[in-house]
């Protein structure tokens, strides 16, 4: 479904990704594991069109997407739920969700999607009329995920959904991610909580200094000595 072929990317003169290869099959849950600064976010931003790769190709459903603008990537069916939530703070939660369904395809089915998403997030339903900026961090993360789902993406990308949240909220976020995975949507997730993420992932990539050093099934990576030492602290 998604293929990154020898992708290089960076900011200005700094190269972050030194040619990485990643594939995601339809229906899979794939995770990219790595330390801060390894290039996980840059990988997601390259796919989303926010960073233009300097070399290599990205194909989605057989078509090259590495030169598309972010809004064109969204129209193809790829949605990124960004790090740090990035809600529209002075809009109501309801309007934030409506913005999630901005593409023509999503807009046509907005009412149905809204019902489905609200079933997944009963707490968000209670806050629909509040300004997004007035919610707690955990509530904002739930809205950010709900907003991402409003686009009815074929591929949903999470960037650090549990970052900066209290442990009990982190658990709730993972519950939600698991529920979304159970609906069968294809997921690419980057998360610092490596243990929980590898548990729900079909496959994982280990990214170090902008290069993929290892790839295997989630289970196998959980048992791997290097992964256990470097990322699980065991």
């Amino acid at each position: 479904m998604l293929t990154l072929n020898d992708v290089q990317a960076g900011y200005g003169r700094t190269t972050i990704l030194h040619g990485i290869n990643v594939t995601v099959q339809k229906g899979e849950v794939v995770t990219i594991v790595g330390a801060n600064g390894a290039g996980k976010t840059t990988t997601l931003r390259s796919i989303a069109g926010l960073v233009r790769p300097t070399a290599g190709s990205i194909t989605f459903e057989g078509e090259p997407i590495e030169k598309l603008s972010p809004h064109e990537v969204v129209a193809r069916g790829i949605t990124l739920i960004p790090e740090g939530r990035q809600l529209f703070p002075f809009m109501s939660v309801r309007d934030n969700l409506r913005m999630g369904a901005y593409t023509p395809q999503a807009r046509a089915r907005m009412a149905t999607t809204m019902d489905e998403v609200m079933d997944l997030f009963p707490r968000v339903r209670e806050k629909l009329e509040q300004h997004a900026g007035s919610l707690s961090g955990g509530e904002q993360q739930m809205v950010a995920i709900a907003r991402g789902l409003m686009a009815r993406p074929k591929l949903l990308m999470f960037d650090e959904p549990s970052l900066g949240l209290a442990p009990i909220i982190v658990a709730q976020v993972f519950d939600v991610v698991e529920k979304i995975v159970a609906t069968g949507v294809t997921v690419l997730i980057v998360e610092q909580n490596v243990f929980r993420t590898l548990n729900i992932a079909d496959r994982g990539y280990v990214l170090e200094n902008g290069e993929i050093v290892m790839t295997d099934s989630g289970e196998a990576l959980l048992r791997d000595d290097h992964v256990r030492r470097a990322y699980l602290g065991i």
Partner: peptide, 13 residues
């Protein structure tokens, strides 16, 4: 309110 997030919603800024 948030240019980058609007792009991620599919808005051509």
């Amino acid at each position: 309110q948030h240019r980058a997030a609007a792009q991620l919603m599919g808005v051509d800024v």
